[in-house]
Lab assay of single mutants.
Amino acid sequence: NQASVVANQLIPINTALTLVMMRSEVVTPVGIPAEDIPRLVSMQVNRAVPLGTTLMPDMVRGYA
């Protein structure tokens, strides 16, 4: 089972991601792999991401 990136807090739209906003968790469906967390830092979300939501590739500008 692969860990995915999950929002550690509410992340408002257009917010640049920081390490404290994300955690890794084994979830279904699988989202962005946890090993990509360092790559996600400073990328912006293109929608509001509620606490506990799995980050999907289409939620992060420039990721996919």
Rank of each mutant, 00 (worst) to 15 (best):
L17P: 02
M21T: 03
Q2K: 04
P12V: 07
V30K: 04
P33V: 13
A34T: 10
T28D: 15
S4L: 01
M22N: 00
L10H: 14
T53P: 00
P12Y: 08
V60E: 00
R61K: 11
M21G: 03
T54D: 01
P29Q: 07
P29V: 08
N1S: 15
I13N: 13
L55E: 01
A64L: 09
E35V: 08
N1T: 15
V27A: 09
M59Q: 05
A16N: 06
P29H: 07
T54I: 09
L40M: 09
T15H: 07
Q2W: 09
A7N: 02
V49I: 13
P33M: 12
D58N: 13
T15W: 09
A34G: 11
S24N: 09
Q44M: 13
V6K: 04
A16C: 10
V49R: 03
T54E: 01
M59R: 03
G52N: 14
V41E: 07
Q9P: 02
L17R: 00
E25K: 05
V45R: 00
I37N: 00
E25G: 08
N8F: 08
M59W: 07
V30F: 13
L40S: 00
N8P: 02
V41T: 07
V60I: 12
V49T: 09
V27M: 12
M59P: 01
A48Q: 09
V26Q: 14
S42F: 12
I37D: 00
L51N: 06
S42V: 03
R47M: 12
R47S: 15
M21I: 03
V41D: 03
T28M: 05
L17T: 00
M22C: 03
R47W: 11
V60K: 00
L55N: 00
N1R: 03
A48T: 11
N8C: 05
P29F: 06
N8K: 09
G31Y: 02
T54H: 03
N8M: 14
I37R: 07
V6M: 08
P29N: 07
M59V: 05
V6G: 01
L10A: 14
G62A: 08
A34P: 08
L10E: 14
R39G: 06
G52L: 05
P12T: 11
N14W: 10
I11Q: 01
D36Y: 14
P50F: 13
D58Y: 11
R61D: 06
R39I: 08
V27K: 07
L55I: 14
T54L: 05
L10S: 15
A16D: 05
M21V: 04
V5S: 03
P29M: 07
L10Y: 13
A48R: 10
Q2Y: 11
D36T: 07
P33A: 13
L19F: 11
S24C: 06
L51I: 12
R39D: 04
A34S: 15
R23Q: 04
S42R: 09
P38A: 14
V45M: 08
T53W: 13
R61S: 09
R61V: 15
M56K: 05
L19P: 05
V5R: 00
V5P: 02
V45Y: 00
A64C: 08
V5C: 07
I32Q: 00
I32H: 01
V49D: 01
E25T: 09
M59F: 15
G52H: 10
V60R: 00
L19E: 04
I11Y: 00
I32P: 00
I37L: 13
